[in-house]
Amino acid sequence: MSAQAVIDPAELDEVLARHPQGQPAGLVNLLHDLQAAFRYLPEQALERAAEHLGLSSAEVYGVATFYEGFHLKPRGEHICTVCMGTACHVRGAARLLEQAERDLAVRAGQTTPDLRFTLEQVNCVGACALGPLVILDGKYHGSMAPDRLSRLLGKLSDKKGSK
């Protein structure tokens, strides 16, 4: 198990305390806050969320898996997101995704076994004028080309991990 799978119970309590108990309507916002704290939604967090809001595990699990923005598996240290919006698509986004898949040796939606990188695709981030677009750790890189993406990813993987 990776270091990320252990979650801090105090932090979990702290996030839960920010949300009123027994109010199921707050589920999606609570899941966002839990994910912001743990970078993904650990099983334990989902179970506690269910308890806190008075929902069943099944309901919470059903909701967490419905929305694309929630991750039930630990994510990599670096997140590479390829925009697959229409504008990016007609400007060749598929090739960027393929390049990243080759470079990182994972498929879209997966994390490298060493937890260094997660490769994701997103439907559109509303920065269409910059297409094709790749977001690396939150920073937008517009007018991307496969070879440039390769170099960017290479630079990140050369750097020592932060832990």
Partner: peptide, 19 residues
């Protein structure tokens, strides 16, 4: 939460109700 269908009114309401 990242779901295109939630732009539809009744789906949006379901989402706002935590479903």
């Amino acid at each position: 939460g990242g779901a295109f269908v939630c732009g539809e009114e009744s789906a949006m309401i379901a989402s706002l109700e935590g479903r």
